[in-house]
Each structure stands twice: as structure tokens, then as C-alpha cells.
């Protein structure tokens, strides 16, 4: 026995120059998508701006400069270097408001995505693994949530809970829940009959361990992609609620709320509406591009060997 083991040890030599690590492989696929890299770049800039808003914003976002109502951006006649992107109807600096607004948008995105993902994954894991009535009940509830137009449902929740940023976040998280549940359930159902799950069962693993330690890490790739893409949906929905007056309340510099306040000046002062709109557009676009790159990098079906 001993000598044969020694022989086969020497023989079972591995590939010594090990293949590239998972992170480098991930980056190789991700960086192939130029749009995704651009999206990632913009997103990083946005995060930095939001974090450093206190230091780099030229003005206080809610301070009203009484002598500077509706000052146009600097490159337009009558513009001033004090207010690069102009001011709004009560004399607040739009650039500073956008910078602070980025904080709210990212905050909403993070909270909504993590909340919806954690709850959704938990429900999806157990529904998919246990099946039977647990599955039926969970999926029918999710079907009901999915059968309403999402914004309408969010409005209903906010109407019940009362307007405000926190309640808007809860409402948006609830309407995103079904997507996570369905996605998780589908991947759990395809993983649970694989041999490695059976071997863990033969080794004596209980349901909780099987679901969380054995199965969950193998279902993460599509969930990460979904999380990235729903980050932008959350920002968009929060802006929509803010625009309808049901989300963040003035004077918070939330982008949707800024849009709503600027509605009446659309014809007289285009910059008041345009810049928050552009901010939302570019942010959502960047995150979606990034999500596409993640999908290319993580989805094994799209990988070439």
C-alpha cells in the first residue's frame, strides 16, 4: 500500500502553473465589455462624490441665496462662476444639491437591494428546497405582488405608511422582493438534486446547513447580477416616488424631489429640470451597463470555454 501511494502521489502531479485565479478570470470577462467598464468607472466616481460631498460641494445644499434666484449655468449668458450649474427657484446651488443627492440615491439603492435580497433569498431558498405547501404559499404571495403595476403598489404602501424616504424605501423593497424569490427558487431547484448536495446529505447535513452552506453559494451568480440591475430600478422608483411627492420630502436634495419642485420652471429655466434628470439618467445607465458586464462575467451559459 505505502509504496503504491508514493508512486501515485508523484504521478498525480497537478498543473504546476496554476490557471488564473477566479478574480482575474472575472476581470478578463468583465473588461471585455467596454460599456461595463465605463459604467463601473462612472459608478466609482459617483460613490467618491457622494462620500466626499461635505468637502467638495461648493455650497450647502439647502442654503438659499436670496439674491441669486434661478441663475443659469456658467456657460450661459448671465451665469456665474459661483454657481457652476446655476441655482433653483429659491436660490440653492444645483451642483451641490446633485452631489448630496447622490448620497440619497446610493443610500436608497443599497438599502433596498440588501433588504429585498436578504429576505427574498431566504424565502426562495426554503421554498425551493422544501417544496410542497411552503413553496405553494410563498409563490402565490409573490404572484400576487407581481400582479400589480410596481409603482402603483409602491404608492399604495406609501399611502398606508405615510410619505417619507424611509417608507418609500420599504415600499420599493417589497415590490422588488418577488424577483429575488423567483430567481433563488429556480436556482435552488436546479442545484438541489446535484450529487454534491446528496453527498452532504449522506454525510448527515441537516436542512439548514444544506440550504445555507451547501446550496446558497452556488446560486449566488445570478442573484448578484439581479442585485446590480435592481439597484438602478430602486433609484428610478425612488425618484418617481419623490417626483410624485410620496418619497423624500423637500428640502432634502433627492433627485426625484428636485425634479418635482422644478416642474413649474420647465419653460423659463431649463437647467433646473435638466440636471437632476440627466443625473438620474446617467446613473441608471451606468449601473445597467455594469450589470450587463457582471452578467457576461458570471453567467456560465455565456462563457466560452
Amino acid at each position: 500500500m505505502t509504496d503504491t501511494t508514493a508512486v501515485s502521489t508523484a504521478n498525480a502531479a497537478p498543473n504546476n502553473q496554476a490557471p488564473v485565479g477566479p478574480w482575474r478570470e472575472f476581470w478578463a470577462y468583465f473588461s471585455e465589455n467596454k460599456g461595463a467598464v465605463a459604467g463601473l468607472g462612472f459608478f466609482v466616481v459617483l460613490v467618491v462624490v457622494a462620500l466626499l460631498a461635505d468637502f467638495i460641494a461648493p455650497h450647502d445644499p439647502i442654503e438659499q441665496y436670496r439674491e441669486h434666484f434661478l441663475v443659469p449655468p456658467v456657460w450661459v449668458d448671465g451665469g456665474s462662476w459661483d454657481f457652476l450649474l446655476g441655482t433653483d427657484a429659491v436660490g440653492r446651488d444645483i451642483l451641490s444639491r446633485l452631489m448630496f443627492g447622490a448620497r440619497y440615491s446610493l443610500f436608497i439603492g443599497c438599502i433596498v437591494v440588501s433588504g429585498a435580497a436578504v429576505v427574498g433569498i431566504a424565502i426562495g431558498l426554503f421554498a425551493g428546497y422544501l417544496g410542497g405547501w411552503v413553496d405553494t404559499v410563498a409563490m402565490r404571495v409573490m404572484d400576487i405582488l407581481l400582479s400589480y403595476p410596481p409603482l402603483l403598489l409602491a404608492l399604495v404602501f406609501v399611502a398606508i405608511l405615510g410619505p417619507g424616504l424611509e417608507n418609500a424605501i420599504v415600499a420599493i423593497a417589497v415590490i422588488q422582493l418577488p424577483h429575488y424569490v423567483r430567481l433563488t427558487r429556480a436556482s435552488v431547484m436546479s442545484e438541489r438534486n446535484r450529487d454534491y448536495v446528496t453527498s452532504a446529505r449522506v454525510a448527515g447535513a441537516g436542512t439548514l446547513r444544506l440550504v445555507t452552506v451547501t446550496i446558497l453559494p452556488n446560486c449566488m451568480a445570478p442573484i448578484i447580477v439581479q442585485a446590480a440591475l435592481s439597484f438602478s430600478t430602486a433609484i428610478l422608483d425612488a425618484a418617481a416616488l419623490g417626483f410624485l411627492g410620496m418619497g423624500a420630502q423637500p428640502p432634502l436634495p433627492e433627485w426625484g424631489t428636485m425634479l418635482a419642485e422644478a416642474r413649474e420652471f420647465i419653460l423659463r429655466a431649463w437647467w433646473v429640470v435638466t440636471f437632476p434628470g440627466v443625473a438620474i439618467l446617467v446613473t441608471v445607465l451606468a449601473i445597467n451597463l455594469m450589470g450587463d458586464g457582471l452578467r457576461d462575467a458570471l453567467d456560465p451559459k455565456l462563457k466560452r470555454s
Partner: peptide, 12 residues
Amino acid sequence: PTLPGVVPGLFD
């Protein structure tokens, strides 16, 4: 009687 090792891959 065995044939030791494996078919060479991309790196070896």
C-alpha cells in the same frame, strides 16, 4: 498497470 499523470493542459 497504469498510465501515470494526466493529459497536458494549457499550462503544462
